[in-house]
């Protein structure tokens, strides 16, 4: 069976059982290896992607739910040449240690900043609660998300100026 998905703005058709978790399709069929397999139970957040603006666990999301929906993965935030605000902030704050949780952290932060561009430190902390980091770089991750918010605000300011 084939299922049509919209991933990072591109329409992709994959031949897969509709019950397959999105994470497997992203990694195995579409070669988008940013989202990670952690627990497979929707409990650790390493697989987090954004669907229509909401952060979701792709490991427990069968693709049959997703026709017509906009899926954004960490690859959709920017490129090596042109990293997005979240990616620049995570590099600047050196928020990754082993890095396994980082794509999920970024995507949950992305969903938060879409909804609340001026999210406070408390809101960031609360929003990231479902995502785990075993290296304990939480404080740097919080710093990076706050910094990304600043970068986005600066960018909007510049936009207004031109």
């Amino acid at each position: 069976m084939t299922v049509t998905l919209n991933v990072n703005g591109r329409t992709r058709t994959v031949a897969a059982d509709p019950r397959t978790p999105l994470l497997y399709v992203l990694r195995n069929d579409l070669r988008l290896n940013g989202a990670k397999f952690g627990c497979g139970l929707g409990q650790c957040g390493a697989c987090t992607v954004v669907i229509d603006g909401e952060a979701v666990f792709s490991c427990v999301t069968p693709i049959l739910l997703l026709e017509g929906r906009q899926i954004t993965t960490v690859e959709g935030l920017g490129t090596l040449e042109r990293p997005g605000a979240l990616q620049r902030a995570f590099i600047e704050k050196q928020a990754a240690q082993c890095g396994y949780c980082i794509p999920g952290m970024m995507m949950r932060a992305h969903a938060l900043l879409l909804k609340r561009p001026n999210a406070t430190r408390d809101e960031i902390r609360k929003a990231l609660e479902p995502n785990l980091c075993r290296c304990c770089t939480h404080m740097r991750i919080l710093d990076a998300v706050a910094r990304a918010g600043e970068l986005m605000r600066e960018a909007r300011g510049e936009d207004q100026g031109t």
Binding site: G40, L41, P62
Partner: peptide, 14 residues
């Protein structure tokens, strides 16, 4: 059917 497929895909693993 849809309901069974959603159950299999989203719920059954736990």
């Amino acid at each position: 059917p849809l309901g069974a497929a959603v159950y299999d895909g989203a719920c059954a693993s736990c």
